[in-house]
Amino acid sequence: MPLAHTGELMRDAVGSGVGLAAFNVISLEHGEAIIEAAEQTQLPAVLQISENCIKFHHGRLKPLVSGLAALAESSHACVSLHLDHIEDERILREAAGTAITSVMFDGSRLGFQDNVAATRDAARWAHLRGWHVEAELGEIGGKNGAHAPGVRTDPVEAARFAADTGVDSLAVAVGSSHAMTAQTARLDHDLIARIRAVVGVPLVLHGSSGVPDDEVVLAVASGMVKINLGTILNVAFTGAVRSALAAPDIVDPRAYLAPARMETAAVACRLLQVVATRPVAAP
């Protein structure tokens, strides 16, 4: 199936009142697992390539994008390709003309005004190429240890930031934290609703791996649209590798990558269904 556009997937999710699951990819095995899950559930997904992932692949963006695009196009899955947490504008330039249709430009290390200026410039550049642009006001808890998980986004600042930058979606801090390996986070659903009421673009929840399933469903009901997931897939992948390598005679990487891919697909299937759950109205 031809690749989808992230902006269209976001609009469809908003129109249907459900969330859109976005999964971080590290290797082609991750991509295969996520695409398989999207096929099995018949639900859309976003494949996210972070700046850290690009660094892991020795700075080579295009081979990874090309590989993921080929995997998606040879499947029946409805998926798009997205750049995540991009701070280096050179990566944006390199991605021009590829299958990428969206970017999360990350100026959150900057002060408010500098973040606005940098994000606005990146958004203008990306919009000329038809991309959907996501940004972040201040760092989400846990990212590079810069903030404690208790950090929260101010609704008034969020509304101002979205209006001044012209972005299409906004990641906000409401209680989740990056790189959590257990689903123990509790979200501020009242804050999500208050931000949603004043921000004119869809909201994005980063650090969703540490959020329990029922909290994710409530977050979507409160106003979140795009739900970013990464660490939870890595926990599944690495756990399966560890189990497989318990057999001392294994030397063929396929013997541990295959179960890792299978377990990652199973977790992605469950998460796709959770994110797409329509909240039941209270009696």
Rank of each mutant, 00 (worst) to 15 (best):
L83M: 04
M224L: 13
D154I: 04
E157T: 10
V65L: 11
G230C: 06
V133N: 00
P155Y: 09
E136L: 12
H58P: 07
A221E: 01
V198E: 06
A219K: 13
A13V: 05
A22E: 05
A179K: 07
E157A: 06
A221D: 11
G130A: 13
R109Y: 06
T277V: 10
A266F: 08
A77F: 08
A95R: 11
V133P: 00
V216L: 13
A37V: 09
F23Y: 03
L43N: 03
N52A: 01
E263P: 01
R93T: 07
L191D: 13
R90I: 09
G230T: 05
V217F: 11
R124F: 11
E263Y: 02
D84G: 12
R129E: 12
A219E: 02
N52I: 00
D249A: 04
L205A: 12
P259T: 02
G141N: 04
H82T: 13
P149T: 13
K62G: 14
L137N: 06
P202V: 08
P2Q: 15
A72F: 08
A247G: 02
L191T: 05
R261Q: 08
Q113I: 13
D168F: 09
T101W: 04
V14N: 11
T238I: 13
P259A: 04
L257M: 08
L68T: 10
V201M: 05
T6M: 03
P63G: 07
A96G: 11
L191R: 06
G19L: 00
G7I: 06
I250P: 01
S66H: 15
L61M: 05
E94H: 07
D84F: 14
R160T: 14
S75G: 07
D213E: 06
A281Q: 14
A162Q: 01
A281M: 11
A117Q: 11
P259K: 05
S243T: 10
H30A: 08
G138V: 00
A123Q: 04
V25G: 03
A266W: 09
P202M: 12
V211L: 10
V14H: 01
I140N: 01
L20D: 07
A158E: 04
D252R: 12
H30I: 14
E29V: 04
L64F: 06
D214Q: 13
D121Y: 01
R194H: 11
A255E: 09
R152P: 00
A173K: 03
G150D: 14
A159H: 12
E157W: 12
V267R: 03
V216A: 06
G111R: 12
G17H: 08
V199I: 14
S209C: 08
P63A: 01
F161L: 10
N52Y: 10
L92I: 09
L257G: 08
R60L: 03
V225G: 10
S16H: 09
L187Y: 00
D12V: 12
I26M: 01
E39H: 02
V216K: 00
E51G: 02
P202R: 02
S177V: 12
G97A: 00
I86M: 10
F161G: 11
C78S: 15
A171K: 07
P259F: 07
F23A: 09
R186Y: 15
L191E: 11
R160I: 09
L3K: 15
Y256D: 07
T98M: 01
Q48H: 02
R109N: 07
E94F: 03
A236T: 01
